[in-house]
């Protein structure tokens, strides 16, 4: 069998990506519950399988066998359209993620652009889910979700633009390739390109937390205010798909942070680059995301928007100008 024939390659990656997304969704829930347990001095799931490792499986079975309750007076099309709209763009974004130099479904030149194009679709899923449910809590949550996503897309994209100015490419694999040869070639430590790189990373990471509706920015599903937010009316696998989409988004956000700032599949000391480094960095970031959720209270919607418009966007803009200046003016002074 010729693995390099195009249809087979496509099929293999399609299966692989969907499996990766689903597996991540399932086992990140397990990890989330384990971390939450240990943060809270409990032990988390332990009954099903060793260390509760089969828990996601039975949870999945439960979700799939549950009756899907569809309330009256909903918008039947939008209500059913919303969960896939949240999940499919997230899965599509995996297409251009370079897990290693060769392990990438489509190594295209506009990879970064494509991910952000898809990332902006998933807010539509939140909006339609909230609107279609005909539930006041869900509508409020959807409104929050949209304003939050709009507010955080801006600093995130500005930060990405500074990265593109430095890297001169939108090809994710190429960006990783530029970071080869040790930890100080990672863009987070490449202070010669821009001394504020660390802040860029923090802005990017904060924004990706907000973009993926994670605590402390999980206002769309603030259960003490809005019950379950935009997926209040969803049950069974409808809810399950929202959940999968949410975790797939976390993986995408952390993958991007890994690729742009932490050297992707490159090794910190220049040896044996490969998929294992990518996964290690990715899961360290995801672990941080989970830890943040279980140690912080939730912000308010105006606190969140204030943070975006009054802190992150000015910083990101300043960063952009500084980077431009560094690129154009630096070579003039020190040719």
């Amino acid at each position: 069998m010729n693995l390099h024939s195009e249809p087979i390659r496509l099929l293999a990656f399609l299966v692989g990506i969907i499996a990766f997304a689903a597996l991540n969704a399932a086992y990140l829930v397990w990890l989330e519950r384990k971390v939450a347990g240990h943060v809270q001095r409990r032990i988390g799931p332990k009954e099903v399988g060793p260390f509760g490792l089969l828990q996601p499986l039975v949870d999945g079975i439960k979700l799939m066998t549950k009756q899907v309750l569809i309330p009256d007076n909903i918008d039947p099309i939008l209500f059913r359209l919303a969960p896939p709209l949240l999940l499919i763009p997230a899965v599509m974004s995996f297409v251009t993620i370079p897990f290693s130099e060769t392990l990438v479904a489509r190594d295209i030149n506009l990879g970064l652009l494509m991910i952000f194009a898809f990332a902006s679709i998933n807010v539509l899923g939140i909006l339609l889910g909230g609107w279609g449910s005909n539930n006041k809590y869900a509508v409020i949550a959807a409104a929050r979700g949209v304003s939050q996503n709009v507010a955080y897309e801006i600093p995130m994209l500005i930060t990405v633009i500074t990265m593109v100015m430095i890297t001169h490419t939108l090809n994710l694999n190429e960006i990783v390739r530029q970071q080869g040869g040790g930890i100080f070639n990672w863009y987070i430590f490449r202070w010669s390109a821009n001394p504020l790189m660390l802040i860029s990373f923090l802005i990017f990471f904060t924004c990706s937390l907000a973009e993926t509706n994670r605590a402390p920015f999980d206002l769309g599903e603030a259960e003490s205010e809005l019950v379950a937010g935009y997926h209040t009316e969803y049950s069974g696998m409808g809810f399950g798909i929202f959940f999968m989409g949410e975790y797939a988004n976390i993986v995408i956000g952390c993958s991007l942070a890994t690729i742009l700032f932490l050297g992707g599949w490159q090794c910190p000391f220049g040896l044996w680059p490969g998929v294992h480094w990518f996964l290690i960095k990715l899961y360290i970031l995801i672990f941080t995301v989970i830890l943040i959720r279980w140690t912080f209270p939730r912000t308010t919607i105006y606190g969140l928007l204030n943070l975006s418009w009054k802190v992150l966007i000015p910083f990101a803009l300043f960063n952009l100008i500084l980077t431009g200046a560094m690129i154009k003016i630096w070579p003039m002074i020190f040719p």
Binding site: Q40, R41, P216, W294, T295, P297
Partner: peptide, 16 residues
């Protein structure tokens, strides 16, 4: 109260 504000963990410590 902290749970109302979205922080889950202090509840378990307090209950401890």
């Amino acid at each position: 109260f902290i749970l109302d504000l979205g922080g889950f963990t202090p509840l378990l410590y307090a209950f401890d």
